[in-house]
Amino acid sequence: MAHAIEFQNVTKTFQGSLRNAVDHINFTAEEGEFITILGSSGCGKTTLLKMINRLYEPDTGKIILFGEDISSMNPVKLRRRIGYVIQQIGLFPHMTVGSNIAMVPNLLKWEKEKTDARVDQLLTMAGLAPEEYRNRYPAQLSGGQQQRVGLARALAADPKIMLLDEPFGAIDSITRARLQEELLTLHRGMKKTFLFVTHDIEEAFKLGTRVMIMNEGHILQFDTPEQIILHPADGFVSSLVESAREKERFWEKFK
């Protein structure tokens, strides 16, 4: 069985930059995994993500999805098979919630009945009553509701891979915690591979079945949360874990 995602020696340098944004990366991810990619800004995590749907092209190396080298695939077709969610959500303000969710099915020319049924199903799954929300505009929703719609839209054509680039970065912490739970439940219910970029260590360890820690274009450690906490690979990782512990101790004081 082929890996869901496989990176072979992938390097990417941006023009005018001295070091590689992503530097000789190798890793594999299996179908159904929830992988969180953790790192501070500029560590290459977003670049890594955007190479998977070919918004960026690697300079060297190969990216293989389910045994298929993506450089030989049509980028438009590839992207329609991959769910993509970003921090700014990116709902189209001039389209209703329903049309936003129906976007990829429409691009794929699904039949109208099938698309409509799918939209209603996804809205229900996102906890938004279809009759009430289908015809609203994004501006009429709260930030949390907008990101639920963003997720529903990315899931519309039932992609096998979901790329999530700090999707909860701009959402208040109470709503964020709820959305994290919902995302976990969602992931458990389907056999999809999630790649979730974040700079929040708690989010990364809470959501990920495996966590990839990145710094300066390299993968420092890629393992289950338990293994990382028990056996940090190097000083950077242990300082990261330590910083999270410290934060926890801060809250302990008030108990």
Partner: peptide
Amino acid sequence: FLLETAGGMG
């Protein structure tokens, strides 16, 4: 970011 989302959706 809207253009990127549009492109990223295919």
